[in-house]
Structures are given as structure tokens and as C-alpha cells.
């Protein structure tokens, strides 16, 4: 099973209610949607794609059928941006 966790050094910036993640090594800033921001807050500890999807379903009553697909895409994008690390367990 693959677990994901934030990379050290990445910092969240809050501006007007919007969350952005700074990767100072890659010189990038990534803007997060509110749901993505919630997932980022959880990734201070290791999570699998399934545990994140379950957390989103519990937190957002209106979560739709595509949560698993959205979480998979979200994790892929954060990996691409160098913001999270994957750990095989």
C-alpha cells in the first residue's frame, strides 16, 4: 500500500481564505481548492488514497461519486509538484 505525507520545507500560505503551498526548493507555488486544502491539512501524517477519500466523504456531506478519482488526481499533482512523498508500506 502506498502512503503519502508532506515533504519537509513546504509551507502553506493563507491569503484571503485561499491556501497556497510554497515549495522553496522547486521555486513553485501551488494553489489549492478548499477540499484540496483540507486534504493538505491531513497530510501532516501519512495517509493512503483510500483514507483521504474516506476523510473527504466524512467531512463533506455533498461529496460526489468522483471522490476517489479526484483524490488520485490530487495526489498525482502534488507528487508532480514535489510537495508530498510516497512511502510503500
Amino acid at each position: 500500500m502506498t502512503l503519502y505525507i508532506r515533504k519537509p520545507g513546504c509551507e502553506a500560505i493563507e491569503l484571503d481564505g485561499e491556501t497556497m503551498i510554497l515549495n522553496p526548493d522547486g521555486l513553485t507555488i501551488t494553489r489549492l481548492s478548499p477540499v484540496a486544502s483540507y486534504c493538505w491539512s491531513l497530510l501532516c501524517e501519512t495517509h493512503s488514497a483510500d483514507s483521504l477519500s474516506n476523510a473527504v466523504r466524512s467531512h463533506y456531506e455533498e461529496a460526489g461519486q468522483t471522490v476517489e478519482q479526484d483524490i488520485s488526481l490530487f495526489l498525482h499533482d502534488l507528487m508532480e509538484c514535489g510537495l508530498i512523498a510516497a512511502v510503500e508500506k
Binding site: G9, E11, I13, L15, L22, P24, D25, L27, I29
Partner: peptide, 15 residues
């Protein structure tokens, strides 16, 4: 060629 600390400082000042 900003270092990690330089980048954080620049972002803090821009913010």
C-alpha cells in the same frame, strides 16, 4: 540563484 531560505524570505516579503 536563491537558496531555500532566500525563497522563503522573498515569498514572505511578497506576501
Amino acid at each position: 540563484n536563491p537558496s531555500t531560505d532566500d525563497t522563503k524570505a522573498i515569498i514572505g516579503l511578497l506576501r
